[in-house]
Write a protein that binds this DNA or RNA. Structure first.
Length: 146
DNA sequence: CGTTTGACTACGC
DNA sequence: CGCGTAGCCAAAC
C-alpha cells in the first residue's frame, strides 16, 4: 500500500496524538511540524524512513484540521517561519497570536529557535503515553574535542 | 469523472 | 538567505 504524503494512514488517530502534543506547548514557545512528528512512533506498517519523510506533512494536515482549542499558532516550519497557505489571512493571524505571546520575528519573518524553541513535554509524560523524545530544534553544540 | 489542491523537510546552488 | 526539487494520495469541486 502506497503511503500518502498528505495524510496519515489513520488520520483520526494521528490527529489525536498531534493535538495532544500541541496542547503541551507553552505560550510564547514554538515547535515545528517535524519536531511533533518525531515524538509520535511510526504507525503500524509504516517504515521508519518513510515515516521520517512523510510525517511532517501529516502533522501539517492535523494542524489544518485542528479546532481552536489547540494552540496551532505555536507550530511553525523547520525554517522558523510561519508556513504559507492559501489565504494569507491565517498566516497573519498566526503571527499576531504569537507576537501577543511575546514571540518576536526577524526582519525576514523568522522566529529564533535559540530563544523560542520548545524542548518538548517532560520525558515521563512522553513515556506514559508511549511517545518518543523529540529531536531538538536548537543547533547541536560542537563536538567536544578530547 | 477529470482536476485541483494541499500548516513539510532536507539538500543542492 | 532565497529558490527549486523530490515525494506521488485522496477529498473537494
Amino acid at each position: 500500500m502506497a503511503l500518502s504524503q498528505f495524510h496519515a494512514p489513520d488520520p483520526d488517530a494521528y490527529n489525536a496524538l498531534v493535538w495532544l502534543i500541541a496542547r503541551q506547548i507553552p505560550p510564547g514557545r514554538v515547535s515545528t511540524y517535524g519536531q511533533i512528528a518525531s515524538m509520535i512512533p511510526p504507525p503500524e506498517g509504516v517504515a521508519p524512513d518513510a515515516y521520517a519523510r512523510l510525517s511532517p506533512r501529516w502533522v501539517g494536515a492535523s494542524m489544518r484540521a485542528a479546532s481552536d482549542d489547540v494552540p496551532w499558532q505555536r507550530v511553525i516550519n523547520s525554517q522558523g517561519k510561519i508556513s504559507p497557505r492559501g489565504s494569507g489571512d491565517a498566516v497573519d493571524e498566526q503571527r499576531v497570536r504569537l507576537e501577543a505571546e511575546g514571540v518576536t520575528f526577524t526582519p525576514q519573518g523568522r522566529v529564533d529557535f535559540e530563544i523560542y524553541a520548545w524542548d518538548g513535554p517532560d520525558p515521563a509524560w512522553l513515556r506514559e503515553r508511549h511517545l518518543l523524545p523529540p529531536r531538538s530544534l536548537r543547533k547541536k553544540p560542537p563536538a567536544k574535542p578530547a
